[in-house]
Amino acid sequence: MSIWQRLLNIDRRIVYLFLFAFISLPLLVPIGLPLTISPETRAIYDYIEKLPEGSVVVVSFDYSPSSYSEQHPQAVAVMNHLMRKPGIKIILVAFWEQGPIMAEEILRTIDTHGKEYGKDFVHLGYVAGGETAMSAFAADIHKTFPVDYRKNPIDSLPMMADIRSAKDISLLISIAAGSPGVPEFARQIQGPYKVPFAAGLVAISVPITMPYMQSGQMFGLMAGLRGAAEYEQLLNMKGKGSIGMDAISFSHIVVLAFILIANVAYLANRKGGAK
C-alpha cells in the first residue's frame, strides 16, 4: 500500500486520538485567542443594558445535561448580567423537565448583587406540556404555577403580585437545546404578546433558527459555546465559555487538517492511478 493510500485510509482511532489531544491541550494550557463579538450576541447584551428599572425578564431553562457544556455557560453569563443590573426582576422557568436543576445550580453559586428571592427573582420550576404549557404560562402565570420550585405559593411572593401574564414581561430569553424551544416560543409568546425574544442555542441549531432572526421574531442569539464566550467578554468575566474557545479552535484545526490530508492523498492517488 502506497503512502497516499495509507493516508486515505487512516484508522478512525488515530483520528480520534489527535482530536482528543488537540482539545485537551488548550484546556490545560489556555492560549486566549482573540475573539470578535457577533452582532447577534451583542444585541442581547445591549438590550439588557438598556432595560429600565422595574423590567421583568423571563429566563427559560430549556436544556438538559447533554448540552450542559455548551449551554450552561450561556445561562450563567446572562444570569450574571441580569443580577448585576439593579431594579431588574427575573423569573426563572423551564419547559424542559431537567431545566430547574440547571437553574438551581446557577442560583446556588451566583453573586446576586443584593437581589432577594421572592422580591427580585423567583424560580417557578418546570411545567409539563411543551408548547401547550407555554401558551398557558403566557395567558396566566399564576394559574400555570400555583407554587414556585421551592414550594412557596406564588401569591406569597411579593414580586409576582403585579406579574400575571406575558403582557407584564419585558424580555424573554430561552436557553433552548431543541424542542420545545425557539419555534414554540415564537408561536405562543413572542407572536401573540409581542414580547421581545432572544435565545441561547447549541451551535448546530443556529442555521435553522436564523429565519427567526431574519423575520424579527428574535432580536438576538448566542451561538453555542462561542456565544457564551462572547457574552463573557462583554461582561469582562472569565467563564467556561472563554476557557473552551481555544479548544474549539484547535478542534477545528484538526478537522481541517484531516480533510486536507484526505484530499491531498486522494488527488495524489488518483494521479498515480491515471499514469
Binding site: I10, R12, V15, Y16, L19, F20, I23, S64, P65, S66, S67, Y68, S69, S251, V254, V255, F258, I259, I261, A262, N263, Y266, L267
Partner: peptide, 25 residues
Amino acid sequence: VPVDATIFSLLAFYITSAAYRAFRA
C-alpha cells in the same frame, strides 16, 4: 450530567471521522 455530556461530546469525534471520509474532491 458528566455521563450525558460525555456521550454528547462523542459527536466531536464522529464529526471528525465523517468529515475526513466524506469531504473529498
